[in-house]
Design a protein around this nucleic acid. Structure first.
Length: 849
RNA sequence: GCAGAAGUGGUGGAAUUGGUAGACACGCAAGACUAAGGAUCUUGUGCCUGUAAUGGGUGUGGGGGUUCGAGUCCCCCCUUCUGCACCA
């Protein structure tokens, strides 16, 4: 009888499905709930190894908690809106809906093949009107609460997506998805006021011990709070102000000029009234071009004098105002007070244009050389600052701020790097924004009873823009306020909006009169363990935290954070292969005589560095092929065994073979001992010496596996089971009692291995006449098995291991010392005699001397 | 530049609180079974040294420190990865 995964795996998958083994009961179950969630996938129709890993980790946690007696919520769904569906529509003339739904079918099948324990009755697809109608309702309620607004602004534009990107979606100046350089465009779009929640989003991070520090740091970084002072500067000879933001008000007296971003709202007027209009326009054009091509870093600081002066609020000196290429329009106020002596950027600028450098901070002690070679940015003592002289910079910050507040030309405040979340997308396949433009009433929300604003299903894709913009039947409507003819918004929402609340919808997926029952959602949330890739550390995980707070404020839920514990799993990586710069799939490459060659041509293959598996580099392994060859259990086991979850995992075929071999060993030893298992008695008393070791090993393994699953060390849990299997192979049967010991060891292997390799373990359990494993509790430790009569005491001499002693477990400290002193360790002693003995009870003795 | 994570055999990785470094697996080597083995089983495997051993030395990126004892704690340095980056 051989292990044939292709036969047993479908059998159990069918059974789990028919019997609804993994359904969640919710509020009325009477059991403690456990919500385990893996980030839902985009239904591309194909699975990659990253998915296998992500969902295998989640499945172990889910199955473990099922078997610990929890009411487990383990749902799956589809992040189904997004660009690929539209691109496919353009290429293949298939409507996005049809393409998406058929992909969902295909992908659900792949998930079933891996044997994951989902409650499929709770499946959701974000592209269904039953889902997005509630999102439209949230949008309208947010609009009514002033949490949504429309603004024309310079935005990031991806020419490949043909749409706007949020700040978070631009990485290194390129589109996070395509890697195409992002350009700037001025466009009117809708914004969520995430900045209104910036403080809470930041503060609550301190109360989230279940999140990894690096994710919290990335969010803190992204929110980028800084405390400082807003200072008003008057224009010379005009009744107009400009405000700057600074974190160093203590350097105010060192201001020798000011710099403004060319995109600043006042810039156009200033240029208009300048006699050097042309020169300035030229500079503005140059800077804008520079900012468009954001991949250029470390460019030279340049500027142009505006011809205008500001008045220093304290000294009342004239301060020249420049346009400068390094000043960002969307950080702070878009204008900075320049203190060349104490800011490196200002220093470089001042040096280039021969502007004065005025030192107002000196180190408290130590030398200080003038003229400065670079800015002095450390804290120190204030000098050349009139009434503030002698103050330490920390005190000085406060004193200057207070003075400005008193004289009415400043206020203290905070500034965030975080921008509001621009959610308009000029695309078709997304949730329609439920707003209507009426010539008379302006922009008004659709009536709630008219929701959903449905996306047309049968559409013709011809051009590269969204067909909604040309569909009269979609955008022609009447104004919900005055009833006149009006035009519907044709932009759709960022797909990150759908993923901001899907985990709440799972709690009550079929409600019809409300987004979800508050009763159920308050019971099931927060997510107890959320598992997904680090790449979402900022975008998705920040948006979903924001959205939860909004839904709480709108009265839909009673909690303010959606995720209790977060596990960010590493990427699955593999080396790349290429010939003359063209990438090859691994199956096109063969390794012979120490060289990689292209199959067919025999050309030598260049082996590139290990990178995240990606289709563009062709360094991918198709999980379907892997499952076909080894079975789902082996695939799951490998991704869990090869590396701890947070680490990147390098793919290796040898590793897979090792896991396959292990499952075969399990299969062989269990099937060889079926009769013994069937005929065995439960062990109630400690067995005689022949069986004692394996009995102890069995219970040590039970303990270790449970502990390791709890702390997400799946690789060591699996290795512990491997040890027990190895010990079982070496175990010699003699008495009936030893048969019972072996039987218990093998039953335990089945029960413990089940969360990792569910199919083979169910099959073996059935063959051995055991009840279905999914319905059995995890095995429990018999504490008596862990008791030892003898213990190993390691003897160190001056910190080095020199001996090992087996001593009675209940030996006293005095007897251990006696035992050690009775032996001759003198040749290891520096002084020849024992000066001191240190005994760590039950573990080791260190002899010092 | 700032922030974070990490650096352990030929390889993936163990070592939960400062207490036997290298579990488990891959690879490799030897042997067994076999017509044959790329199947399976057994044994060995950090490095140096020693023809004996329960032998000696050395060893967790490098250097210093704390300690009876450091992969683990502290200080300095190097390397790699990730995120942010002219943030005022």
């Amino acid at each position: 009888m051989h292990y044939k995964p292709s036969e047993i795996e479908p059998k159990w998958q069918k059974k789990w499905n028919e019997e609804k083994t993994f359904s969640y009961n919710g509020k009325n179950s009477g059991k403690k709930k456990y919500y385990i969630l893996e980030m839902f996938p985009y239904p591309s129709g194909k699975l990659h190894m990253g998915h296998v890993r992500n969902y295998s980790i989640g499945d172990v946690v889910a199955r473990y908690h099922f078997r610990k007696g929890f009411d487990v919520l383990h749902p799956m769904g589809w992040d189904a809106f997004g660009l690929p569906a539209e691109n496919a529509a353009i290429e293949n003339k298939i409507p996005p809906a049809r393409w998406t739904y058929s992909n969902i079918e295909a992908m659900r099948e792949r998930f079933r093949q891996l044997g994951f324990s989902y409650d499929w009755d709770r499946e959701i697809a974000t592209c269904s009107p039953e889902y997005y109608r509630w999102e439209q309702r949230f949008f309208i309620e947010m609009f009514n609460k002033d949490l949504v607004y429309k603004k024309k602004n310079e935005v990031n534009w991806c020419p490949q997506c043909n749409t706007v990107l949020a700040n978070e979606q631009v990485e290194d100046g390129v589109c996070w998805r395509h890697g195409t350089p992002v350009t700037k465009k001025k466009i009117e779009q809708w914004y969520f006021k995430i900045t209104e929640y910036a403080q809470e989003l930041l503060e609550t991070l301190n109360d989230m011990p279940g999140w990894p520090d690096h994710v919290k740091d990335m969010q803190r970084n992204w929110i980028g709070k800084s405390t400082g002072t807003y200072i008003d500067f008057k224009f010379e000879g005009r009744d107009e102000n400009v405000t700057v933001f600074t974190t160093r008000p203590d350097t105010l007296m060192g201001v020798t000029f000011a710099s403004m971003a060319v995109e600043h709202p006042m810039a156009a007027e200033i240029i208009e009234r300048s006699p050097q209009k042309e020169e300035m326009n030229e500079f503005v054009g140059e800077v804008k071009k520079l900012h468009e091509n954001m991949r250029d870093d470390a460019y030279e600081k340049k500027g142009v004098f505006t011809g205008e002066y500001l008045i220093h609020p304290v000294s009342e000196e004239k301060i020249p105002l420049y346009f400068a290429n390094f000043v960002l329009a969307d950080y702070g106020t878009g204008v900075v007070m320049a203190v060349p002596a104490h800011d490196q950027r200002d220093f470089e600028f001042a040096t280039k244009y021969g502007l004065p450098v005025k030192v107002v901070i000196r180190p408290e002690d130590g030398e200080f050389f003038e003229p400065l070679k670079e800015a002095y940015t450390e804290p120190g003592v204030m000098v050349n600052s009139g009434r503030f002289n002698g103050l330490l910079s920390e005190k000085g910050k406060e004193a200057v701020s207070n003075h400005l507040v008193e004289t009415g030309c400043g206020k203290t405040g905070v500034n965030y790097r975080l921008r509001d979340w621009g959610i308009s997308r000029q695309r078709f396949w997304g949730t329609p924004i439920p707003m209507i433009n009426c010539e008379k009433c302006g922009t008004v929300p659709e009536k709630v009873e008219n929701l959903p604003v449905k996306l047309p299903e049968d559409v013709d894709f011809s051009g590269s823009t969204s067909p909604l913009k040309d569909m009269l039947e979609f955008y022609e409507t009447e104004c919900p306020v005055c009833g006149n003819k009006a035009k519907r918004e044709t932009d759709t929402m960022d797909t990150f909006v759908e993923s901001s609340w899907y985990h709440m919808k799972y709690c009550d997926p079929h409600s019809e009169n409300e987004p979800f029952s508050r009763f159920e959602v308050d019971h099931s949330m927060p997510v107890d363990k959320y598992i997904g890739g680090v790449e979402h550390a900022v975008m998705h995980l920040l948006y979903t935290r924001f959205f939860t707070k909004v839904l709480c404020d709108l009265g839909y839920v009673s909690f303010r954070e959606p995720v209790k514990d977060l596990l960010t799993q590493g990427m699955v990586c593999m080396e790349t292969y290429s010939v003359n710069g063209e990438y090859l799939y691994p199956e096109e490459v063969a390794f012979e005589n120490g060289l990689y060659r292209q199959i067919g041509t025999g050309r030598e293959v260049k082996v590139g560095r290990v990178e995240k598996m990606s289709k563009s580099k062709k360094n991918v392994v198709d999980p379907v092929k892997l499952i076909g060859k080894y079975g789902a259990d082996t695939a799951r086991l490998f991704v869990l065994f090869a590396s701890p979850p947070e680490k990147d995992l390098e793919w290796s075929e040898e590793g897979v073979e090792g896991c396959s071999r292990f499952l075969n060993r399990v299969w062989n030893i269990v099937t060889a001992n079926i009769d013994i298992i069937k005929g065995s008695k439960e062990i109630t008393e400690p067995p005689a010496s022949k069986g004692r070791d394996l009995w102890a090993k069995t219970h040590e393994t039970i303990k270790k596996v449970s502990d390791d699953i709890e702390r997400f060390h799946f690789n060591t849990a699996i290795s512990a089971i491997m040890e027990l299997v190895n010990a079982s192979y070496k175990f010699e049967l003699c008495t009936d009692e030893t048969k019972d010991v072996l039987a218990e060891a093998l039953r335990s292997v089945i029960l413990l291995l089940n969360p990792f390799a569910p199919h083979i373990t169910e099959e073996l359990a059935e063959m051995c006449g055991m009840p279905a494993v999914a319905k059995q509790k995890m095995p429990e430790v018999n504490k008596r098995a862990l008791e030892k009569s003898e213990i190993l005491i390691v003897v160190q001499v001056n910190g080095k291991v020199r001996d090992r002693l087996m001593l009675p477990a209940d030996i006293s400290t005095e007897d251990v010392e006696k035992e050690v002193r009775s032996r001759d360790y003198s040749r290891f002693l520096k002084s020849g005699e024992i000066k001191k003995l240190i005994y760590v009870p039950g573990k080791l003795v260190n002899v010092v001397g």
